[in-house]
Design a protein around this nucleic acid. Structure first.
Lengths: 155, 155
DNA sequence: ACCAAAAATGCAACTTCGTTGCAATAGCTA
DNA sequence: TAGCTATTGCAACGAAGTTGCATTTTTGGT
């Protein structure tokens, strides 16, 4: 994942995004910036517990705010617990590896599809058992609906 | 997804897997076999409501049983609601498209990584905004731990 | 530095989700 | 069909996530 980020940098992220610099937001962002692996909500709560008094509702609100502003990415995983990671230019979208035994989620090297073939080569340090590809965006009908709305001036 | 499956076929699936043919299991399997898109739990509950009296706990148990026996696959999606689809040889692992507007999940053609490059070509019927790749299996340390356990005869 | 407006947080309550233990019921085999 | 075993239903529980509202904190202008 990312190299360790200084607290100063996380303040900059908030500033650039135009979000107010509250202690809670800084704390959450610091956790995401200084972890080597993506963290899920309970991991974030645990990490915060030692550092700051924060309501669990606030964590949810901060995470969805960060996600909305694309400061962080959410990583889906079967079983319901999703993970979060910092979304910076130095940390582009990349595959993840979820161990079915210890449930640890680790980051793999970013790869283009053309690289993927050779990348999925012989002996990697994981036993790959399942590859899941999820693509999202707008389906045809929603895209058309959006266009129509724009034409007619609706929001 | 799959072509419509006859009720007879779903009975065969249970039989081949060695699971008892209860009305509840047949009903759940029929829903998964006769949908054109993957369904999430609430979709399954809605579809079942009209057909059979079934406890919600039973649905969870049946789904995890089916998953354990690899009759179905679980598809992760950000936001927490996961989807399920039939896992047959005619329906191999394939990418999915999640519309961020209507939340409909549809199936894309199965593709090898080497095909992916050209497949992600110019005008598709989706606006692709995000590609998520999740790979799972065993990480190095868990794999080694498993080996050690096997050697020493532990389960 | 201070003050007012706006924004963010905390709190309480609520809904939904998923799980577990146990009793009742239904499926399977002889 | 009788009896054993597996499955389902039920009740209860804990965790997850959301919402409305009161309180506190940021922010920006003076």
């Amino acid at each position: 994942m990312l190299p360790k980020t200084k607290d100063k940098d996380t303040l900059l992220i908030l500033q650039k995004t135009g979000l107010s610099k509250t202690p809670q937001r800084i704390a959450v962002l610091n956790i995401l910036a200084n972890t080597t692996v993506p963290v899920n909500i309970s991991g974030i709560r645990d990490a915060l517990e030692a550092k700051i008094r924060i309501n669990r509702v606030t964590i949810y609100r901060i995470l969805s705010l960060f996600k909305k502003h694309m400061i962080i990415r959410e990583i889906a995983s079967t079983g319901g617990t999703n993970y979060f990671e910092l979304a910076t230019m130095e940390n582009p979208v990349h595959p993840h590896f979820l161990c079915r035994n210890c449930a640890a989620l680790s980051c793999l090297e970013p790869l283009t599809f053309s690289q993927a073939n050779q990348w999925l080569g012989p002996d990697k340090d994981y036993s790959i058992e399942h590859i899941e590809i999820n693509i999202s965006g707008l389906c045809a009908s929603c895209r058309n609906a959006t266009k129509l709305q724009k034409r007619s001036g609706k929001v």
